[in-house]
Design a protein around this nucleic acid. Structure first.
Length: 171
DNA sequence: ACTCCGATTGTT
DNA sequence: ACAATCGGAGTA
């Protein structure tokens, strides 16, 4: 169950891998395609991160998967990870699920990796904060997470005091 | 061809 | 606070 995500709004978003580019590159090409496909990329030369492409074709929107609450398969996940936590954070999440670059552009309606509808989450259970690890558009409140859920990388929000962004404390 | 640095994680 | 580690993107 996905409990933490971050939104990236393509060319409109300075923090997106599709920002400021005239068009698709080899890496971000899948984001310009239809929704429901996976955008997997390598970060810091060692970790994989996965996005779900969103929006109509040509929009290059994507949602980064940052936190997962395992409901089953913990044993396999633990075997892949080798240690805890299992799927807290985008890199760990991919390692726990065995997601690699081979799944770039994968149709998430098909095996071996499918995205299925979960349960509605009440508004007062959704925390909002700035995105983690991004320097551009650092004040955009595009991170969403389930309050108190296990699998969320960080509950408080931004490390910096800023607090200009909407926090999960209210609403 | 060359340099810079990142949507991270784990250790010091 | 800092290292690990490498390919994408920008510059020459």
């Amino acid at each position: 169950m996905i409990v933490e995500t971050e939104a990236y709004d393509g060319p409109n978003d300075p923090a997106s891998h599709a920002a400021t580019l005239r068009g698709p590159t080899k890496r971000n090409a899948v984001m310009f395609g239809p929704a429901g496909f996976s955008y997997v990329y390598r970060i810091y030369g060692m970790h994989w991160c996965m996005n779900v492409v969103t929006g109509p074709e040509g929009d290059a929107g994507a949602v980064l998967l940052r936190g997962l609450h395992a409901m089953e398969g913990q044993e396999v996940m633990k075997q892949r990870r080798g240690c805890e936590p299992l799927s807290t954070g985008p890199g760990r999440l991919c390692e726990a699920l065995g997601i690699t670059g081979e799944l770039y552009g994968h149709d998430l309606r098909e095996e071996p990796l499918r995205l299925q509808a979960g349960w509605a989450v009440a508004h007062d259970m959704v925390g909002i904060s700035t995105r983690i690890g991004v320097s551009a558009a650092a004040d955009w409140p595009y991170r969403f997470y389930v309050l108190g859920a296990s699998g969320v990388s960080r509950h408080p929000g931004p490390t910096k005091p800023s607090a200009t962004a909407t926090e999960g404390s209210q609403e």
